[in-house]
Design a protein around this nucleic acid. Sequence first.
DNA 1: TCTTGTAGACTTGTATACAAGTGTATCTGT
DNA 2: ACAGATACACTTGTATACAAGTCTACAAGA
Lengths: 224, 224
Amino acid sequence: MKDTERLAGETARDFAFRVLKDNIISLDLVPGSLISENDISSQLGISRTPVREAIIDLSKASIIEIYPQRGSYVSLIDPKMVEEARFLRRVLDCAVIKVACESADPDVLEKIEENLSLQDFYLVREAADKILDLDNEFHKLIYTAAHKDIVYEIRSTIMIHFDRVRTLSVEAVKDMKIVADHHAMYNAILNHDKETAVALVDKHLSRYRLDESKIKEEFPEYFK
Amino acid sequence: MKDTERLAGETARDFAFRVLKDNIISLDLVPGSLISENDISSQLGISRTPVREAIIDLSKASIIEIYPQRGSYVSLIDPKMVEEARFLRRVLDCAVIKVACESADPDVLEKIEENLSLQDFYLVREAADKILDLDNEFHKLIYTAAHKDIVYEIRSTIMIHFDRVRTLSVEAVKDMKIVADHHAMYNAILNHDKETAVALVDKHLSRYRLDESKIKEEFPEYFK
DNA sequence: TCTTGTAGACTTGTATACAAGTGTATCTGT
DNA sequence: ACAGATACACTTGTATACAAGTCTACAAGA
């Protein structure tokens, strides 16, 4: 497991949660691997209690499975779970972008423009990790523009299943299409064009479905 | 706070979570009240650790607010939060009932019929609490029929905000309409009639919106 | 009277000890 | 050699001690 620096003011529990989540998404903690509360706590230099609390949090999202008195394991990638995550994301993204088309917060629109210009900036430099962060921020901003921040929190709890699959499928060529999608979505919001916006969300999501079968062939041991 | 018996095989943490959640929904723990980890643990006869873990869980759903080194409080009823919960419920219920209209699991349909007959049974006996339980089960069954159980879990984490408002607005006369709605929804699913189903979900939800302003007048100290 | 500081009783955050269950490796007896 | 008992090294679950921050009441001094 890759561990990072503990941020200033960050509680031990938040630290453990952040490190575990990042390592699960990045697949440095591979699906199916054992997570020992003792090991993690000694690696991070904190006690078992905050580590345990972080693990319980993650188990709520079904990304870690706790077997009492036996051990805790990183969940295998469950196609059914990924499918439900995709369903949830599609339903929420569509509903929220419709609201954004009706009435978007002007201040947030400004931030979206800034975000998009940065996506262009890093696109030409082929900085996939930067694009990924900006991608996440872009979608969060749409929720904020629609005043649906709590719904976004809900979305992100399950989206970890999706992000993990996304880690396996980063392709440089795809980033271009993704960024183009984002620009198109933003324009649809500006034009109050719900139909186009929803169609774009669908197209955007379909990009991930394609290579899932390829991934499954390449990494069968990660799947349930 | 009303405390109940600890169920057989139930962990201390699950016990604390269940008791706290039930008391928050029933408003025996009134909005804004202080929740002391020490008090709860001594009341329930368990130690602080599992109580603390339960409180952290509930704070994830924003139903309890933890202020480090100061105290943990039951969240006041936040109209914005309730509105987002309503939005989320509407979006999810509509999307899922559409799937159920397309293809519903026959075994689950059988269970829904059983549930509906029980709703009729308790309706004539005016057993509001039984109706409430059956109401929750009914909606969960629709999710199961559509094979969207994980989405239902997500739904229930935020629905606590909604349930709490519902506690303030139980009216015998309303139960009749609710049960009638359920029958109509079930028929729409049988008839694969998506349009009617979605319209029913909308009508169903609108029943709660009506008396929210009345509640706010009656219990202003519960609101943010 | 008003300010200030200080003691103390809270709070949550963290560390650690112990309880209890599980799986494995090993030893023992047949 | 094989079956079964057993010790041991794990695991998570729970209890408890202590650390550190916050608020309040109250007394001392200007």
